[in-house]
Design a binder for these strands. Structure first.
Lengths: 235, 235
DNA sequence: CGCCGTATTGAGCGCTCTCAAGCTAGGTGG
DNA sequence: CCACCTAGCTTGAGAGCGCTCAATACGGCG
């Protein structure tokens, strides 16, 4: 997509970190310098790619990850609509993690140099950016929790809160595979499957294919906090 | 310390994220609005404290953590001289984690509102700040690694790279307790002790009290990457 | 309808945890 | 200056959670 092309607005834009900044600039120097449409499994950038832009998710979802010598994938983070990825690349000046679409995805490219200019002119954009960074620092604080149930409960609750337009905050679209969740939480895919089944049997959630409906977020919070099974749990 | 007081320079300042910005302002409106000296175990801020400032470490070290219902501590991050903490509090507008000195420590307080003003005037400060944020995002990517040895090796190597003035990059001052390291890596303190002993027996490191000397960073990197013991390891 | 990737479920093993007992180092007071 | 005291570290033994390997079930897509 050519630089300066008009930026269309879609439903997720109104929840985006950038707010209206991506559309408020003059046509010759927009903040968002292009879009990219990715199919599932397509790469946004790869380990050691040179850095010049960060990206905002317009729709879909992206995972950032490393591959170890044995070929095992360690997922560093998932990114959902409205969220920004690529900050990791600023300091080393290359991407230290690879990024791949886990579903059909559209991203907005933000030139880092242009972002610096914008921030200087618009203090409010700096606020938005730091809020996004701040939120990101709070993601995944639970990945070292003692038990698999603690990690999974925390993960589900966090996802509920991150999904834009989630009125009920009860329905989660599990766009990532069990393997991906496992690679994020430091657990085997089979363990993810088992824990979800246990949650289902305890009537804490309903699983319908890739969608999860949280029935009892209070008990999930208990589990997330201390890993103790609730009194009336007969796995 | 009164606002506007002259900011003294110590050895760690020249490696600080803020660079010279903390001293470059006019006396009526400095970026650093005060200092705080903490003894070991003293609290810098606590969970749910209201947010108005972030902090730069001048000397010493700080840990940020949560306490669960069972009283177990989960450490989110360690902060060393020159590093900045408190970003997590921007979005919720309160501190979602507690912060405590793990050794005698001195911090510089940075008013967030003043930081916003400064960034607008000084694009270079924005660059420094984003570099710091970027670095921080790359910390601890290994905490979900499969084995305890992988996590510990990665942790040691990361610490080597983070210590300011570390010419050899081989000596690490382990200012935190085994328990703290365990709470950070999601392992028991006993496991930390055992892994360090194994590294010592394999002649990968030398442990003298709280100091660690890395003898074979190459093998540590192998362990960090795939958890495989090297051929000549007789734990 | 049949294929293939993904998810589920089971059995057995192994790494890490827990519990517990020494050990070490640093600080305190006689 | 040394004995004591305490907190932290080390090391051992046994148990348990999650991993691996494997078989089966499911579901999307041609």
């Amino acid at each position: 997509m050519a630089v300066g092309e008009a930026v269309e607005v879609n439903s997720s834009c109104k929840h985006c970190t950038l707010g209206t900044f991506c559309r408020s600039a003059d046509p010759d120097s927009p903040l968002v310098t292009g879009h990219q449409v990715l199919k599932r499994r397509e790469s946004l950038y790869s380990y050691r790619d040179s850095f010049s832009s960060i990206y905002a998710i317009a729709s879909g979802a992206i995972k950032t990850f490393q591959i170890d010598v044995e070929g095992k994938e360690r997922i560093h983070q998932f990114y959902l609509p409205g969220e920004i990825l690529g900050f990791e690349a600023i300091h080393p000046n290359y991407f230290p993690l690879s990024a791949m679409a886990i579903t059909n995805t559209k991203v907005c490219r933000i030139s880092y140099e242009r972002l610096i200019d914008f921030v200087t002119i618009h203090p409010h954009l700096f606020r938005r950016l730091m809020e996004s960074v701040s939120q990101r620092f709070n993601f995944g604080v639970y990945v070292t929790a003692a038990t698999a149930e603690q990690r999974m409960a925390s993960f589900l609750l966090e996802l509920c809160g991150r999904i834009p337009n989630n009125l009920s905050t009860q329905d989660v679209d599990l766009c990532m595979s069990r393997q991906d969740i496992g690679n994020y939480l430091g657990l085997a895919a089979e363990t993810i499957s088992r824990v979800l089944s246990r949650f289902k049997n305890r009537k804490l959630i309903v699983i319908t294919n890739k969608k999860i409906n949280v029935l009892d977020s209070v008990k999930l919070q208990w589990i997330a906090q201390d890993g103790l099974a609730d009194p009336d749990s007969f796995s």
